[in-house]
Design a protein around this nucleic acid. Sequence first.
DNA 1: GCTGAAACGAGCAATGT
DNA 2: ACATTGCTCGTTTCAGC
Lengths: 155, 155
Amino acid sequence: MEVSLDTIDLQILTLIQNNARISNADLARELSMAPSAVLERVKKLEQKKVITGYTTQINPTAVQQKLLAFIFIRSSESFGCGKTGEELAKIPEVQEVHNIAGEDCYLIKVRTADSASLMHMMRTSLRNIPNITSTKTTIVLETVKEQQQIIIPKN
Amino acid sequence: MEVSLDTIDLQILTLIQNNARISNADLARELSMAPSAVLERVKKLEQKKVITGYTTQINPTAVQQKLLAFIFIRSSESFGCGKTGEELAKIPEVQEVHNIAGEDCYLIKVRTADSASLMHMMRTSLRNIPNITSTKTTIVLETVKEQQQIIIPKN
DNA sequence: GCTGAAACGAGCAATGT
DNA sequence: ACATTGCTCGTTTCAGC
């Protein structure tokens, strides 16, 4: 779907991206517009799927999710068939599934409580997915930065 | 900092994680509590840094950020010195910086408009960081899943 | 730490330009 | 596509338990 965003839309996205709980009234004040006009734009951005959701960032260690890992996965599935990727996406511990260029087929990002639960996930969820020929796991020792904010152009 | 979360806190986190814009009144209804009590808990979760922010998920292609890449970076810095990681974290296109186990030192996640702007970032921002000895770039062809939601325990 | 009340402000839809 | 209006409902503070 084609979307065209003007300067005001981009300003809204910039503000709302860094604080999803900003009130519509505050948004309107920042933009010097009537609240109703801003609300209309936000609703349209949601409809156009420019805004895909509002998420609360939670400290993983506070909820016992202390291990982060990236796993490269090779699959013997025919090129273009995304069946393996879809199966990987169903696993709750898997936050991201990317189809990548190069020898490996998929790169996934996984968050679990500890290394034991990572092993458990690999032995159960991954084992049941056909066509997976090999995996290469990279354990994260420390995360220096982790934000999902995107660079939004000025206009 | 040590934190202890009870069942109600975990319920709040589960609800608010998937919809950061949920009203305090709706939260209270779901939990069968008074709005003021829920507000008090949310404020404390923010203070305790269990909640670290509220983010709006934006479709990257709508704002011309069509390229996603992961880059493995080797550094000659002495072990435990995080200077390189801090420098990488300053680059706006870099969404994530992880210190990883194994031969490579860092894994970063980068989002740019296209391959040309990725090359430009590498030639400018990366070049200026001392101690980087090599980089290995993995281009994402297609993203099947990308969520930051964490698994929150039941109690 | 939760409830209930009360003041204040925001949400949201209708209407007009 | 934006501004104004007005009713409704949510937010937030405070007293009391």
